[in-house]
Amino acid sequence: MVGALVRTRVASNGSMVVQVRGNVSEAATAQLRRALRHALLRVRSPRLVVDLRDAGWVDPLGVGAVVAGCDVAGDRAVSVVVHRPTSVVARRLRAAGLPGSALLHR
């Protein structure tokens, strides 16, 4: 896969899901940032799930976009779960300030 594919959907439980497939390079970060912005500002959902189970590598700008999106979600009283990041990406997310409680490895 050349770059990441980012899709958004509303799950049956009302959660907004941002699903990432492939590697998130600098070019794909803009797509990820737009999806997170849409999820947080346009869709009124009590929960945001950033699904990284099919994501490979996430560059530092992508990590920053996820953490910034989670920060905005917190400001809007939206709970956030980052679902199944790789161990490397999880370490980067924690180092960038994402609370470990937002990471779901199952």
Score class of each variant (00 low, 15 high):
Gln31Glu: 15
Ala65Lys: 12
Ser25Arg: 14
Val88Cys: 01
Val10Arg: 05
Gln19Asn: 06
Val18Tyr: 11
Arg106Gln: 10
Met1Glu: 11
Ala4Phe: 14
Ala27Ile: 15
Pro85Leu: 08
Ala77Trp: 07
Asp51Phe: 00
Ala4Val: 15
Trp57Gly: 06
Ser12Leu: 05
Gly22Arg: 12
Ala35Trp: 11
Val63Ala: 01
Arg37Tyr: 03
Val10Leu: 08
Gly22Ser: 13
Arg44Trp: 06
Gln31Cys: 09
Leu103Pro: 07
Ala11Thr: 13
Ala96Asp: 01
Met16His: 09
Leu98Cys: 04
Gly56Met: 12
Leu103Asp: 10
Thr8Tyr: 06
Leu103Trp: 03
Arg33Ser: 02
Ala90Tyr: 02
Gly97Gln: 02
Ala27Gly: 14
Arg94Ala: 05
Ala102Pro: 03
Pro60Arg: 11
Val20Glu: 09
Leu103Ala: 14
Ala35Gln: 14
Pro60Lys: 08
Leu93Met: 00
Met1Ile: 14
Val6Gln: 13
Ala65Ser: 09
Gly56Ser: 14
Arg94Val: 13
Arg94Asp: 00
Ala65Trp: 05
Ala35Pro: 12
Val82Arg: 11
Val80Trp: 03
Glu26Lys: 04
Ala102Ser: 08
Ser15Glu: 08
Gly22Leu: 07
Arg76Asn: 05
His83Thr: 01
Asp71Gln: 02
Asn13Asp: 15
Asp51Asn: 08
Val58Trp: 06
Met1Leu: 12
Val67Cys: 03
Gly64Phe: 07
Arg37Asp: 00
Arg9Pro: 08
Leu36Tyr: 08
Asp54Phe: 11
Val89Gln: 12
Ser15Phe: 00
Gly64Glu: 00
Ala27Ser: 15
Gly74Arg: 06
Glu26Thr: 10
Val67Phe: 02
Ser45Arg: 01
His83Pro: 09
Leu40His: 04
Gly100Phe: 01
Thr29Pro: 07
Val88Phe: 04
Gly62Leu: 07
Leu36Lys: 07
Pro46Lys: 08
Arg9Ile: 11
Pro85Tyr: 08
Ala55Thr: 09
Arg47Gln: 14
Ser79Cys: 05
Val89Gly: 06
Asp75Met: 00
His38Gln: 11
Arg53Gln: 15
Ala11Ile: 07
Pro46Trp: 04
Pro46Ala: 09
Asp75Ile: 00
Ala77Tyr: 01
Leu103Lys: 08
Val78Cys: 01
Gly69Pro: 01
Val82Gln: 06
Arg21Ile: 13
Gly97Thr: 12
Ala68Ser: 02
His105Glu: 13
Gly97Val: 11
Asp59Trp: 13
Leu48Trp: 05
His83Tyr: 14
Gly69Thr: 04
Gly56Glu: 12
Arg33Cys: 00
Trp57His: 07
Leu98Ile: 12
Arg7Met: 14
His83Phe: 07
Glu26Pro: 05
Ala28Cys: 10
Ser87Lys: 03
Ala39Trp: 04
Val67Gly: 01
Arg21Gly: 09
Ser101Cys: 02
Gly56Trp: 08
Arg42Gly: 04
Gly14Asn: 01
Pro85His: 10
Leu61Phe: 09
Gly69Ser: 08
Pro46His: 05
Leu52Asn: 12
Gly74Val: 04
Leu32Ile: 02
Val43Ile: 11
Thr29Arg: 12
Leu40Pro: 05
Leu40Phe: 09
Pro46Ser: 07
Pro99Ser: 07
Gly62Glu: 05
Arg53Ser: 15
Val67Gln: 02
Ser87Trp: 06
Val82Gly: 07
Trp57Phe: 12
Leu104Gly: 10
Arg34Gln: 09
Val20Lys: 06
